[in-house]
Computed example of a mutant assay.
Amino acid sequence: MSGDELREGTAGGTGCSGAGLLVFVVGPSGAGKDTLLSYARQRLAERGDIVFARRRITRASDHTEDHLSLDGDTFERGVAEGRFPLYWRANGLGYALGEDVAAGIANGNVVVANGSRAAVALARHLFARVKVVLVTAPPEVLAARISARGREGGEAAAQRLAREPRIDIPPDLILINDGGVEQAGERLTAFLRGLGAEG
């Protein structure tokens, strides 16, 4: 199956067991999730118990997002073979968390992953311990950031902005990321540091 044939809106996964905790960072396109995750990763580099996962996406790698690129066929094989603890399809693409997430959870680590609002309920179902961080910003900020990264044209960008999956359970942390990276980045870093200290 090719990337163009990915079934929009479907999700699933095998989950994983262990004493670890999944921190699922979600929010609209342009909210700055990758920027904040990169900031927190650098600030917590000495913490071996806090692991930052790289999700798999059926899109070529570029400078705007730290992910592992898969083609559509490889993604579908991973789904069929049960290699993804969690996967979902949105915006015409396939997304997945990989074996590194399962290993981190099994080892008792705090595993931080860039996720999707549409997959929050499934993540809570598949993983025993989950914390959800919602990153957002005002609509005009989201629009400007999506335009600046140059990945989507006008119609695709508008579709991303219009996408509003519901989160039925309130997030554990909400970050309004509408200024410099330090303000929201430090809040995320402190939140993650506290989770690691919980053991």
Rank of each mutant, 00 (worst) to 15 (best):
F24A: 15
E8F: 04
L142N: 04
P28V: 06
G15W: 00
A128R: 02
E152I: 02
Y87F: 11
L173H: 11
F127T: 07
R145Y: 01
L22N: 03
Q42H: 11
G30Y: 01
S61P: 15
E5W: 13
D49P: 15
N114L: 01
G180N: 08
D178E: 06
G15Q: 00
G179L: 01
I174D: 14
G13L: 00
L97D: 02
P165W: 01
V79E: 04
C16R: 05
P139Q: 04
S2E: 13
A103E: 15
N177T: 04
R55P: 07
A137L: 04
M1K: 13
T189K: 13
G98R: 03
G13M: 00
A158L: 05
D168L: 05
A80P: 13
R151F: 05
A121P: 04
L22K: 01
V112C: 11
F84Y: 08
H125S: 12
E81A: 10
P85F: 04
R193G: 02
H67D: 00
A106K: 08
S38P: 08
T58P: 14
F75W: 01
P85R: 01
R193N: 05
L173V: 13
G104C: 13
E8P: 05
L70V: 08
Y95P: 05
G150N: 07
A123C: 08
L192T: 06
V120I: 10
M1Y: 14
P170I: 10
I105N: 07
P170V: 09
S69H: 01
D168E: 09
R129I: 00
A102P: 09
V23C: 07
V25D: 14
R83I: 14
G92Y: 10
I105T: 10
G179W: 08
G72R: 08
G12H: 04
T136L: 06
Y95C: 03
R43N: 11
R187M: 09
R47F: 05
R56S: 13
A144L: 05
F127Q: 04
D49M: 12
G13P: 02
I167L: 14
V132M: 11
V111W: 06
A162V: 07
R54P: 12
A162Y: 01
D4S: 15
P171C: 12
R59M: 03
D100E: 13
A162I: 11
A128G: 10
G104R: 00
S38F: 10
E8A: 11
T74G: 12
T35I: 11
G108P: 09
N177F: 01
L44T: 03
P139Y: 02
E186L: 13
G199I: 09
G13V: 00
G13F: 03
D73I: 07
D49Q: 12
E155S: 10
R163S: 08
P170C: 09
P28A: 09
G72L: 06
C16S: 04
L192Y: 10
A103L: 15
G27H: 05
V23R: 01
V133Y: 14
D4G: 15
A31K: 00
N109Y: 12
E76M: 13
